Simulated assay, not measured.
Amino acid sequence: MSNHILTLTDISKSYRQGNITVEVLQQVNLTIAEGELVAIIGASGSGKSTLLHIAGLLDKADSGTIQVGQEHYQQTISNTGVNTDLIRLQYLGFVYQYHHLLNNFTARENVAMPALIAGAKYEEVLQAADQLLETLSLSSRRNNMPGELSGGEQQRVAIARSLINKPKLILADEPTGNLDPHTANEVFNLFVNLANKQGTAIIMVTHNHDLAGNMHKIFELKNATLTRVAN
C-alpha cells in the first residue's frame, strides 16, 4: 500500500488582471509521503500560498488532480461531488503566519475547537488539548485568552490546534514569519518535533532558508514551475 498522503498531478492555476492572464502554476507535480517534511521557497508573489491553498482544498486549480490520503479517501478531488470539508477535517491541519485564534476562547478551548467540530467527546478533547499544550510548554497558559499571550505563545497554540485531530499532513504558510529569529527557531523546533512524534507530514512555505534547510526536501516555486532544490 502506498504511504503517500498527498499527490498533486499537473496542477495549473492562472488569474486575470485586467486584459492580462497571469500564470501562477503550470503543471506542478508534488508527492508527499507520511512523515515527510517539505519546504517550499520562492519570491513573494510567486504563488507559494496559492499552491498551499490548492493542496489544502481551500482553492481550486484550473486543471490537474489532487489525491489525498489512502484507502477510501484515495480519490481524485474534482470541483463537485467530494466532501472537501470532511477530508480537511480528517486529514489536514493548517498553520498560518497569523495565528487566527478565537479571541473569546482560552488557549485550551482554541486548541480543542477542531476536535469538537469533528464530534469528539468534550472531556477527551480537553485532555488531548492539555497534553499538546504541555508538550509545547504552555500548561501554565492554558486558561489565558489569546490577547494575554505573547506572539510566540499564540503561534504555539495555533500549532497545537493544527495537531489536535492528529492530521496526516499539516500545511504551514510562513508559520514563524511574524516572530523574531530566536522565537522562530524555538517554535519551529517544537513544531517539527511534535509533528515527528505523531508521524505527521509537513509542507511549509517559508522565506527562511535556514529553517527550510532543516526539512527533508526543499522545492522552489519560480516562473510558475516547482523544482526540487538540493539540500
Rank of each mutant, 00 (worst) to 15 (best):
S2C: 07
H4R: 15
H4T: 09
T7F: 02
L8Q: 12
K13C: 04
R16L: 11
Q17P: 07
I20N: 06
T21D: 05
T21H: 09
V24S: 04
L25N: 04
Q26W: 10
V28D: 01
N29C: 04
N29G: 07
A33F: 01
G35E: 02
G35Q: 02
E36T: 07
L37K: 02
A39E: 05
A39D: 03
A39S: 08
I41K: 01
G42W: 01
S44T: 05
G45F: 01
G47A: 04
G47I: 03
K48Y: 00
T50F: 00
L51E: 02
L52E: 03
A55T: 04
G56K: 06
K60R: 12
A61W: 04
A61R: 08
D62I: 07
S63F: 11
S63W: 11
G64T: 03
T65D: 06
T65W: 03
T65H: 05
V68C: 06
H72P: 09
Q74N: 15
Q74A: 15
Q75F: 06
Q75R: 15
Q75P: 12
T76N: 13
I77Y: 10
I77V: 13
N79M: 14
T80H: 10
N83Y: 11
N83L: 14
L86A: 11
F94H: 05
Y96L: 13
Y98S: 13
H99A: 13
H100S: 15
H100Y: 14
N103P: 14
N104S: 10
R108F: 14
V111M: 09
V111W: 11
A112W: 04
A112F: 03
M113N: 09
A115P: 10
A118G: 10
G119I: 07
A120F: 08
Y122R: 09
E123K: 10
E123R: 13
E123L: 10
E123W: 11
E124P: 10
A128M: 12
A128W: 07
L132R: 04
L132D: 03
L132C: 05
E134F: 14
T135H: 11
S137Q: 05
L138S: 10
R141L: 14
N144C: 14
M145Q: 15
G147F: 11
E148F: 15
G151D: 05
E153H: 10
E153V: 14
A158W: 09
A158L: 13
I159D: 01
I164M: 13
K168P: 00
E174V: 00
E174R: 00
G177F: 03
G177H: 07
N178W: 10
P181N: 11
P181L: 13
P181R: 13
H182S: 11
T183S: 09
T183K: 04
A184H: 03
L190K: 08
F191V: 05
V192F: 00
L194F: 05
L194P: 03
A195C: 06
A195R: 01
A195M: 05
Q198M: 06
A201C: 08
I202R: 01
I203P: 00
T206A: 06
H207E: 01
H207G: 01
N208I: 05
A212V: 02
A212S: 08
G213S: 11
H216Y: 06
K217R: 02
I218M: 04
F219N: 00
L221K: 03
N223M: 06
L226Q: 06
L226R: 03
R228N: 09
V229S: 06
V229N: 12
A230M: 11
N231Q: 13
N231L: 09
